[in-house]
């Protein structure tokens, strides 16, 4: 039996205890994604059908590599937040929800770091 009223529980940082951080980061990464996705699409189209050497040279060049790294960072952050909302909406069993939320973070971080590693390797040529 809690002595707190429902309104009292959601005041301040709210029921999730994180305030508007999720909402805000979702929007900030969404805004960043617009130019970054356009850049990514241009890079992919420019590399269509090119041989491996040409692709390595382009992806390893500083401007393209930095654009790709920013794209990966913003997209994997954004997709982690989005999938979190989908999981919270549809996975009602608490244990399964927690497992799914952890798996979501793992997947996003693995994808992000794998892509970043590949881009850095192409840039530094090691």
């Amino acid at each position: 039996m809690t002595m707190r009223s429902p309104i009292g529980r959601v005041r301040g940082l709210g029921a999730a205890k994180s305030g508007t951080a999720h909402f805000w980061l979702q929007r900030v990464t969404a805004v960043a994604n617009v130019p970054l996705v356009i850049g990514f699409v241009v890079i992919v189209v420019a590399l269509l059908g090119r041989n491996h050497g040409a692709v390595v040279q382009t992806l390893g060049s500083p401007i393209v590599a930095i654009a790709m790294l920013l794209f990966i960072l913003s997209v994997t952050s954004h997709m982690r937040l989005g999938m979190q909302v989908i999981i919270e909406d549809y996975v009602h069993h608490e244990g399964r929800r927690i497992v799914a939320l952890i798996a979501n973070t793992f997947f996003s971080v693995v994808i992000g770091l794998t892509c970043a590693y590949a881009i850095l390797k192409l840039s530094f040529g090691v």
Binding site: V55, M68, C115
Partner: peptide, 10 residues
């Protein structure tokens, strides 16, 4: 797919 493409290129 993006990860596969980048890792393959690297």
């Amino acid at each position: 797919l993006v990860a596969w493409w980048l890792i393959a290129a690297a």
